[in-house]
């Protein structure tokens, strides 16, 4: 599609959607949101870009192969589950680390749950993009 309006609009939209997807990912910690929705949003961002500028440009903008992104995400999610072994808990038990925690302040919460969510984010992003790109290129 060669619409200047779409291309100009897409550039702006894609940036916004990617930022918003990261926001959703982090927000999912304690509120509605999370890796799945974040991944979907990011995927839609790239799909918009692909519709506006073609899949070749979209693939280049993504830098990595979508299927590799999905594979890495699956690896991260699995790693988050297996990490529970270090603390002697069962598979997929959430482990928390509060950086700089004091009596009153929880500090920076870091957890294997977040790592799992990031994994889900990448799996969703990679899987959806590989489906959409290959369909787009096949037709």
């Amino acid at each position: 599609m060669n619409s200047i309006i779409l291309i100009a609009g897409a550039r702006l939209l894609v940036v916004l959607m990617l930022v918003f997807s990261l926001f959703m990912l982090i927000r999912g910690h304690n509120e509605p949101g999370g890796g799945f929705i974040g991944g979907l949003l990011a995927a839609i961002g790239f799909v918009v870009y692909a519709i506006a500028c073609g899949t070749r440009d979209a693939r280049r903008a993504l830098r990595f192969r979508p299927s590799s992104i999905a594979g890495t995400g699956l690896g991260l999610a699995l790693l988050a589950g297996v990490m529970a072994a270090i603390w002697g808990d069962t598979l997929f038990t959430g482990q928390w680390l509060f950086l700089g925690a004091t009596e009153t302040d929880k500090g920076w919460p870091l957890s294997t749950v977040l790592l799992f969510d990031i994994g889900v984010y990448l799996v969703v992003l990679g899987a959806i993009l590989s489906i959409v790109f290959s369909l787009e290129e096949a037709v």
Partner: peptide, 16 residues
Amino acid sequence: IVIGFGLFAFALILAF
């Protein structure tokens, strides 16, 4: 729904 979506996407590509 998510699983169904994935399988359906596959089935659609297969039909194509």
